[in-house]
């Protein structure tokens, strides 16, 4: 049975990939993901904002209270070889690329133009097989127009593409007015893959403490619907590969995503719940399902239920409530 998959030009043994998450935070973790059976590993995201914040914090704390009192003009040794910036991330990426057989895709989230360019370049030099641009921001500025937001995505993509020659994926948010058109524009601008979708920061409110609480739990199977919809809609329409991420709990979700048209299916939550070896369970489930239905390759499965191939393509387009109302009427009465 042929599970091989092409994801943005990368040849993968099968279509299940470890998405960006805490398991890739250490070399040991990345090795465990490979041993667990991941076809590729997307490393956790390098956040430029965090690096900037850490730099400032280091600088502030190193100087805090210094040059104030004659006996204690400083509090720390003046360490010359201070690794600030992306060094530790890049070191890990370098070690991972050298240590594991599967492709290691670096993930990046920046807040400045030069950040995207500099870090992307450094990630390529450190041996990344591909890049995933995790363009992630809450557009809280009421004066920012949708055109500006969309243009920013395109600008970042163009900047990075002109800097590196490894494949570049974009991890997208679903909140575009014209998601399809946006996907098309990104595809035309040279995106090698689209990763659908990022799980957005959606804080909660603590009604006892009257505080805003960050809230980001593991994803559940119920969350696959939105990516599933858009993968089904986009499959076959773009040159870019499509990666599905979010809500993989069991082999069922992998199969659904592949049927919708995903080139690869990514998961972190399932691996956090069950450990990296759960990758094998997902793959075995896919295999069993394919065997039962006598599929001989993943390629045959892929897109089988996409909008262009499904028996009733309208089902992907009409809003849910219409379908519910329609189904309210029995065909037999």
């Amino acid at each position: 049975m042929d599970f091989t998959t092409n994801y943005m030009g990368l040849k993968l043994l099968h279509p299940i990939v470890a998405s960006a998450g805490p398991l890739s935070g250490t070399l040991d973790g990345i090795k465990r993901l490979e041993d667990g059976g991941a076809a590729a590993v997307v490393m956790f995201s390098l956040f430029e904002e965090n690096i900037r914040h850490e730099n400032e914090a280091f600088s502030h704390l190193m100087e805090s209270g210094t040059q104030s009192f004659a006996e204690s003009l400083s509090y720390f040794p003046d360490v010359d070889s201070f690794h600030v910036g992306p060094d530790s991330y890049l070191n890990l990426l370098r070690q991972a690329s050298e240590s594991v057989e599967v492709p290691v895709i670096a993930s990046l989230n920046c807040v400045t133009g030069e950040g995207w360019i500099d870090y992307a370049k450094q990630m390529q030099q450190a041996g990344a097989s591909g890049l995933e641009l995790n363009i992630y921001s809450v557009e809280a500025d009421l004066d920012a127009t949708s055109e500006e937001v969309e243009q920013r995505y395109l600008d970042i993509l163009a900047a990075v593409k002109s800097t590196v020659n490894i494949p570049v994926a974009l991890k997208l948010s679903p909140f575009f007015s014209a998601m399809g058109h946006m996907a098309k524009r990104l595809d035309q601008a040279g995106a090698d893959a689209l990763v659908l979708f990022n799980r957005f920061y959606q804080p909660d409110i603590d009604i006892q403490a009257l505080e805003v609480k960050p809230s980001l739990g593991l994803s559940s199977a119920g969350e696959i619907r939105l990516p599933l919809l858009w993968i089904a809609l986009l499959h076959g329409k773009l040159n870019a590969s499509l990666a599905a991420t979010r809500g993989v709990e069991k082999p069922d979700e992998v199969i659904k995503y592949l049927l919708a048209g995903a080139d690869v299916v990514m998961t972190t939550s399932a691996l956090l719940r069950h450990g990296p070896s759960y990758m094998t369970v997902l793959l075995d489930g896919l295999k069993a399902w394919m065997e039962a239905r006598r599929f001989s390759s993943v390629a045959q499965v892929r897109g089988g239920m996409s909008r262009s191939k499904v028996a009733n393509p309208g089902a992907f387009e009409r809003a849910n409530y219409i379908r519910e109302l329609e189904s309210f009427q029995s065909a037999y009465i």
Binding site: E71, S72, L73, S74, Y75, F76, P77, V79
Partner: peptide
């Protein structure tokens, strides 16, 4: 040693950086 500017004492924990334990 706080008063003289952060030198290691025998109370300094393992893994912490201090002057004389850069």
């Amino acid at each position: 040693y706080s008063n003289t500017g952060g030198q290691m004492s025998k109370s300094t924990p393992m893994g912490a950086v201090a002057k004389f334990a850069a």
